[in-house]
């Protein structure tokens, strides 16, 4: 199983590629809504990309209140 830092790194790469943001501009504790400049539909797109990439199921309600890449990684780690 990957470490939390490895999962964060994968998320940052995936987010950078998906939303055309330079990887070096993203950090673990950033607010991903602000950094990626995404709306509600794009948040769903991110959720789907994370599920497809990590082959996990991530119920939407587990993401309420999660705003940082680290928070996303912690939720994913719990299901790996």
């Amino acid at each position: 199983m990957p470490t939390l830092d490895q999962t964060i790194d994968e998320i940052l790469k995936l987010a950078a590629n998906s939303f055309n943001v330079p990887r070096e501009q993203l950090a673990a504790d950033d607010d991903f809504f602000q950094k990626l400049n995404i709306n509600s539909l794009q948040a769903l797109e991110l959720l789907t990309r994370l599920e497809n990439h990590f082959t996990v199921e991530l119920p939407d309600y587990e993401f309420q209140g999660v705003t940082s890449f680290r928070g996303l990684a912690e939720r994913i780690q719990a299901r790996l």
Binding site: L44, L47, T48, E51, N52, E57, P59, D60, Y61
Partner: peptide, 10 residues
């Protein structure tokens, strides 16, 4: 009951 969304694979 949860109102959650499913992806295409699921």
């Amino acid at each position: 009951f949860t109102g959650r969304s499913l992806n295409a694979t699921k």
